[in-house]
Structures are given as structure tokens and as C-alpha cells.
């Protein structure tokens, strides 16, 4: 069944149709939440909460990018989670070893299809990006995650973040500049493959 048909069925209360949409978008929502929140467990909770809210509110969906509509629900869930976290601080993203030091490449970062070197490179890149993202103010972080990581265009990102188009443009420009400055600190640590990628302007 095509996406519009699944959406229409879900709007009529068909949970099975909605669950097929969940399977199609769960990685996008989880990764968005992960980049905004920086914590896997919180991100999973936020994604679950977002899908639940989406099912309850799907009758209010009036066309347009369904992906952007879903990303808005997960963004809202992240804001809620961050408000909760402010009241009850939780553990940091990087787990600590027995000696109390941060584990550089925790086991749960590994992709089983990667070689050990690739896994290490991925982990280093992810660590650098996540570190720099978390250094951004939340409102910049949300915009940059929606556009540069999730690949939404400006209009979709404005819809997802409930912001005017001009605000999205301006926040994105600031966020990119700050990220570039932050990532320069990690430059030598970044995998060679990514440095070459940048130099080619990919």
C-alpha cells in the first residue's frame, strides 16, 4: 500500500496501517531525537511518545510532507523530554569505564557490518558531531538537525520546527558557522576519509 493510502487508513483508526508508517519512519524519528537529546534511552522514549502522539493526532494531518509532520511530533517530544530532564538531571551520553573515564568507543556505537577500523572512525565522527551539536543552543540544534541531518528543505523544516522561514534560514547559518568552528577542534581526530570528503567539497 502506498503512503497516502496508509495515512488515510490510519486516519480511519487502522492501527496496522499506522504501524507500517511507524516502521518506515522509526529510524528518522529516533535519529532526530538522538541528535537533539544526545541520549539513546531518552531518544527511544521520545520517538515512542512521538508515534503515540502522531496516532492520536493523525486525523489533524492535512497533507504536505508526512515526514516533516512526524518530525514535528518528535521535536515536540524532545522539547518535553528536555524540560523533564531540567527538573531531573540524568546520566551523560558517554558511558564511563571502571576507572571513571569516558569510554571512547562504546560497544553500542558499533555497527556489526563495519570492520573494527570503520567502527572506530564512525564512533569518532559521531562523537565529534554530537559533542558540537550539544554545544549549540537548543533552537539552533533543532534547525540544523532537521535540515542537515534529516535533509528537510527550508519549508519543511519551518513547518516541523514551527518557525518562520526567515528564522530557519538565519538559525541554520549561525548553527553551521558555530559547528564549523567546533569541528575544527576535532579536525585532526576526524577519520581521513571524512577529511578527504570535505576537501573534495562533497
Amino acid at each position: 500500500m502506498e503512503e497516502p493510502a496508509l495515512i488515510r487508513a490510519a486516519q480511519r483508526g487502522d492501527l496496522e496501517a499506522f504501524n507500517r508508517l511507524v516502521l518506515a519512519y522509526q529510524e528518522a524519528l529516533f535519529n532526530t531525537a538522538l541528535r537533539i537529546l544526545g541520549d539513546e534511552d531518552l531518544a527511544a522514549d521520545a520517538a515512542q511518545e512521538a508515534f503515540l502522539s502522531a496516532f492520536r493526532a493523525i486525523h489533524a494531518y492535512r497533507g504536505g510532507s508526512f515526514r516533516a509532520w512526524l518530525l514535528r511530533t518528535v521535536t515536540n517530544a524532545c522539547y518535553d523530554e528536555l524540560r523533564r530532564r531540567k527538573r531531573r538531571p540524568t546520566t551523560p551520553l558517554d558511558p564511563e569505564g571502571d576507572d571513571g573515564e569516558e569510554v571512547e568507543s562504546p560497544r553500542w556505537l558499533a555497527d556489526p557490518s563495519d570492520s573494527p577500523e570503520q567502527a572506530l572512525e564512525r564512533a569518532e565522527l559521531e562523537h565529534a558531531i554530537q559533542h558540537c551539536l550539544e554545544a549549540l543552543p537548543l533552537e539552533f540544534r533543532v534547525v540544523v538537525v532537521l535540515t542537515d541531518i534529516q535533509g528537510l528543505d527550508y519549508k519543511e523544516a519551518a513547518r516541523a520546527a514551527r518557525l518562520p522561514l526567515g528564522t530557519v534560514k538565519s538559525r541554520l547559518a549561525r548553527a553551521r558557522l558555530r559547528l564549523r568552528e567546533c569541528l575544527q577542534a576535532f579536525w585532526e581526530l576526524l577519520p581521513a576519509a571524512f577529511r578527504l570528503l570535505e576537501e573534495r567539497g562533497a
Binding site: L15, V22, E27, F30, A44, A47, R122, L125
Partner: peptide
Amino acid sequence: LLRHTPRRRAPRNFTL
């Protein structure tokens, strides 16, 4: 760099 951010697999299915 941001476009090459590694994507994580969802730790579980979020079906309702």
C-alpha cells in the same frame, strides 16, 4: 560533515 553523521538503528520497533 553533518550530512555524513552516522545513522543509528532504532534500538527496537516503535509500533503501537
